[in-house]
Every structure is written in C-alpha cells, then in structure tokens.
C-alpha cells in the first residue's frame, strides 16, 4: 500500500496555491506549475511588496524542492495608446 508523501511536488505546488489565496496577500492569479521535478512560480502581481511576500511564502512552502520564479509587477502608468472601436 502506498502512503501519502507530503514532499511530493504536486502536493507542495497546490499547498502554495492555497497559501497564496488564504494569506493576506490574497493572490489567486499567480501560476504554480511543475516542469519535471522543478516548480515554477510565475505571473503578474500588483506591487513589488506583493512580489516579495509571494516569494517569501513560496520559499516556506517549496524549500527544499528545486523551484524558479518569474513574477512581474504590473505597470500603473497612464495609457500610451487607445483602441478605436468605431
């Protein structure tokens, strides 16, 4: 009979998604994906502070698994173009 291994990357990745949704950062838009044995954490976030908090939580949940991140901070600049829908 197989037993539950809490270190399985699949479960860790889902635990990270759950933590990101339930902790103060409330981030549901970040992708957490498996590429072979590596966990990728990527997507756009609202602020540099949000990015740092997500990376801190990811470290707590994913270490010592191998993981990589590519979190980008969304721009709050005014638009430099418009779309004509006529």
């Amino acid at each position: 009979m197989s037993t539950h291994d809490p270190t399985q990357p699949e479960y860790r990745a889902q635990h990270l998604r759950d933590r990101l949704a339930h902790e103060d950062v409330a981030e549901l838009g970040v992708r957490v994906e498996l590429r072979g044995p590596t966990v990728l954490v990527w997507g756009p976030v609202s602020s540099p502070d949000c990015r740092e908090r997500i990376l801190r939580i990811a470290g707590q949940v994913l270490d010592p698994l191998e993981w990589r991140h590519d979190l980008t901070v969304v721009s709050a600049r005014p638009p430099d173009r418009e779309e004509d829908l006529r």
């Binding site: 976030v45 721009s75 418009e82 779309e83 829908l85």
Partner: peptide
C-alpha cells in the same frame, strides 16, 4: 459584441481606453 478583458495584469497599465461612436 466586442469584449475586452481589462484586468490590470492584462492591460499592463492603469487603465485602457476605447473610443466608441
């Protein structure tokens, strides 16, 4: 009907602008 997803992470700016007549 034209549909636009204006989620800020998608438009990557403070707001998108559409001109309608």
């Amino acid at each position: 009907v034209r549909v636009r997803n204006v989620a800020m992470p998608v438009i990557d700016r403070a707001y998108a602008v559409y001109h309608l007549t």
